[in-house]
């Protein structure tokens, strides 16, 4: 855990310096706003990663029945959705200055909003059941289905139609024009840095929950 924090601090410090100072491709419309890529996309990567761990913990809870797995799964979902909110807000601001509007009815945007709504109802579901064991069991099952729903909503459906959002509309992942090596040297450290940061925050939250148990 100690190394996760140290690597996280180094990566994020590197990302802030390199993200602002390194050369980026000069593209029309995007201009300097291309640097948002270093901060907006890692939010979503972190969300997916944390929600994946959350779903795995839910699976462990169902198969092994230890309440600690449920607490962990809940906190990973909490922090994951928080990163998703940051992703959607930063994406809206970026869209305002490149596409001209905060929100378009783009399949990628609607898909990610739907995915977040599914997770909001996960928290509502958790809050509405009083019995601890019942709550853990129902929400674990729901959590696994929520993650299974999130993947087609964010990754599959937007690729099957046309989309404004880069990396969609038939293009699998990032292609040559979306990302070059100048961007990659900052982008990948940023993804890893923010994922480690997400794990760090979750770890603190889980420890507080364990103390309150």
């Amino acid at each position: 855990m100690k190394w996760i924090k140290i690597i996280c601090v180094f990566l994020l410090v590197y990302v802030t310096i390199a993200g602002f100072l390194f050369d980026v491709p000069a593209l029309p419309i995007l201009n300097e706003a291309i640097r948002v890529l270093f901060f907006h996309v890692p939010m979503w990567f972190t969300m997916i990663f944390l929600l994946f761990i959350s779903a795995i913990n839910s699976y462990y809870y169902i198969s092994k029945g230890r309440i600690n797995y449920d607490i962990k799964s809940n906190e990973y979902a909490n922090v994951g959705v928080f990163f998703g909110m940051l992703g959607i807000i930063s994406g809206m601001l970026w869209a305002k200055f490149t596409w001209g509007t905060y929100w378009t009815n783009d399949p990628k945007l609607n898909g990610s909003a739907l995915g977040l709504l599914i997770y909001f109802s996960y928290f509502v579901l958790r809050g509405s059941v009083k019995d601890e064991l019942k709550k853990a069991k129902i929400s674990s099952v729901y959590n696994i289905f929520a993650f299974a729903m999130l993947i087609p909503l964010i990754f599959i459906l937007p690729r099957m139609t046309d989309s404004l959002h880069p990396g969609n509309g038939g293009n699998p992942g990032f292609n040559v024009y979306d990302m070059n090596s100048q961007l990659r040297v900052v982008f990948y450290p940023s993804v890893i840095g923010f994922i480690l940061f997400g794990i760090w925050i979750t770890n603190i939250r889980v420890r507080i929950k364990f103390l309150n148990k």
């Binding site: 802030t16 100072l21 000069a26 593209l27 029309p28 201009n31």
Partner: peptide, 30 residues
Amino acid sequence: LIAQQVSMADTLRSEGKIYVVVIIFLLILL
């Protein structure tokens, strides 16, 4: 060809003010 005509924040960079931005951001992060 397009890239050569695109305007980037070159003034901000030539004045060195971008370092102020980076240092303040780093301070907050740390």
